[in-house]
Design a protein around this nucleic acid. Structure first.
Lengths: 142, 142
DNA sequence: TTATATATTATAATTATTCTAAACTGTTGA
DNA sequence: TCAACAGTTTAGAATAATTATAATATATAA
């Protein structure tokens, strides 16, 4: 996994000043094996847990949005009043468990490439995302 | 197009009391040719415009959620801090124009059937939705 | 090292949504 | 028909997520 030095480099490369807070957030987000699905709140909580130090919520928002703009994070579409982010920025899809509200990454090969036949003049396709909603088999939908 | 009588029937059939407000909301939502994508706010605005009468926002929320629970409306997954609803409850997909924030329905045949190979034990697939994000071709993403 | 542009922070403001409790209305059955 | 009850509507308060603000602090270039 990457060392802090790398984060400092990486941030600088993309034109983001490597401030203390940004480097810390990068550590938490990217020093891990598996990809991380989180809300801003999850992240803020993790910061104060793991670092015994608080970072202003506004900074967490700013930093996450900055990282997203630079392509280090991806926002995920789910119906929810919260925004979810994903450290896996490659093209991939999600299962959403409606019982537990858990989000599960799909391997590329678990969903066949989606063939979009329509195109809109003057517009380019930015992304094609599939969301598979699942729920317990014996749930009656009252 | 359906007459109010039909809405009263329909509501009653599904166990929703056909109150004045619910019938009005049904009129606005379902007395139209093309499907309607809206937020609660859009709907509330339309009500006061078309009917010169206000319905409490709380009632709009309650009614939309009741209609959704009964399957007359579908909630759409987009990254946004608002919830979008769709009067087209059939399985279909969407284009989302990131420039104009417009949502466009996809005909069934404009996206090939998505083949999901993964399945999760004890869970059934409720829906498979594709969201295609498009944006102006000459936009630099700075 | 200093000047300057940028970032952080606490807090206020905003926006979407849900809750609450009182008033009201649709429905059921005498 | 009408009383009674359960379900609904309502305005406004409460909550939650996010964004704006403006003062302070920091990173970086010269």
């Amino acid at each position: 996994m990457l060392k802090n030095m790398n984060f400092i480099e990486k941030l600088r490369e993309t034109g983001l000043r490597p401030t203390k807070q940004r480097v810390k957030i990068c550590e938490i987000l990217f020093n891990r094996e598996k990809t991380f699905h989180f809300t801003i709140n999850d992240l803020a909580k993790k910061i104060s847990e793991e670092l015994n130090e608080k970072i202003s919520l506004a900074t967490v928002y700013n930093t996450v949005h900055a990282l997203q703009k630079k392509g280090y994070l991806k926002e995920i579409s789910i119906n929810s009043n919260k925004s979810y982010f994903d450290t896996n920025t490659s093209v991939h899809h999600h299962f959403y468990d409606e019982d537990t509200h858990q989000l599960i990454d799909c391997d590329e090969n678990e969903i066949e490439t989606v063939n979009v036949k329509k195109n809109i003049t003057g517009k380019k396709i930015n992304s094609v995302e599939v969301l598979v909603r699942v729920a317990s088999d014996n749930q009656n939908q009252n």
